[in-house]
Design a protein around this nucleic acid. Structure first.
Length: 275
DNA sequence: TGCCAGGCGACGC
DNA sequence: GCGTCGCATGGC
């Protein structure tokens, strides 16, 4: 039986906005082309995406066809397999959270690869988003595989673990260079195994991540939420702390229960626009 | 120009 | 366990 293949993958956006979801500080891998399309490497998959009406159109930049589990993979990546309509309705039980949702209603918390997320958020610490994007791009271009023209994957753990701190400092990584290498050694050496992490309850998993040199509470929480699908974890950076203190009276609204991480992304987006 | 950024590790107490 | 400090670097 011949396998069904498609040159373009068309997904129902269900209210998801690429421009909002790809540039709200949860991923630093996407680039907007001169034509207004978006490109990235997500794990080992290079993709070219754009939105037309209520559809998301995906194309392989090197002209290949989508096969096998591609459709399921991308639906899951863009969180098109959860009922956001119902979730956002719950969030809107709190008036302040409703305002955050209104401002970024097309945001979806992406289900990103663990390794990409770990490296990205180690780089993110005490850093600004423009500069994080720049360092991530330099890391991938210099040491990652070119999956399609000008689209580079993150360097593999064994490649990264063999680099020197100076090679990474040359990219602008600063003192995070040692942290990246240390994380790579943990993964390449099998001390950190993604499949084992995914089996762990969230708190045990968090402790495991904290064992990585250069991964503290904030970075661990970002990896839990963005790279290991723990939607109940809400990373607290300086923007979130400001918003929770100034707007929410010190606590995440109870209507976010179980999905505090997703609520966090709307609040974070709102805080960066308004505080 | 000085302050800040999706913080963390080391250190002192 | 908790508070403070230094850290690399560029965006603004």
């Amino acid at each position: 039986m011949a396998e069904q293949t498609k040159s373009t993958l068309i997904l129902d956006a269900k209210g998801m906005s690429l421009s909002q979801s790809l540039f709200c500080g949860q991923t630093f891998s996407w680039h907007k082309t001169a034509k207004g399309e978006y490109t990235a490497a997500v794990g080992k998959r290079a993709v070219l995406a754009n939105e037309q009406g209520k559809k998301i159109m995906l194309v392989k930049p090197n002209g290949g066809s989508f096969t096998g589990d591609d459709e399921q993979f991308w639906k899951h990546y863009f969180a098109l397999d959860i009922d956001y309509e119902a979730l956002l309705q719950r969030f809107c039980e709190n008036e302040k959270l409703a305002e955050c949702v209104r401002e970024g209603s097309g945001i979806r918390v992406l289900n990103q690869p663990f390794w990409d997320t770990l490296l990205s958020f180690i780089i993110s610490q005490n850093n600004n988003i423009k500069r994080i994007e720049k360092i991530v791009r330099a890391l991938c271009e210099n040491f990652g595989q070119e999956l399609a023209q000008d689209i580079f994957a993150f360097p593999k753990p064994d490649v990264l673990s063999a680099l020197t701190e100076d090679e990474l400092k040359a990219l602008g990584a600063g003192y995070r260079a040692a942290y990246l290498i240390s994380a790579a050694k943990c993964v390449a050496g099998g001390i950190i195994q993604e499949s084992a992490l995914r089996q762990m309850p969230t708190q045990e998993l968090r402790r495991a991540l904290l064992n990585i040199h250069g991964v503290g509470p904030k970075v661990a929480d970002c990896v839990l939420l963005f790279g290991l699908e723990r939607t109940e974890v809400a990373p607290m950076d300086v923007w979130m702390k400001r918003a929770i203190t100034q707007i929410f009276g010190g606590n995440m609204p109870s209507c976010a229960g179980g999905y505090e991480g997703i609520a966090q992304q709307y609040i974070f987006n709102w805080a960066r626009e308004n505080l």
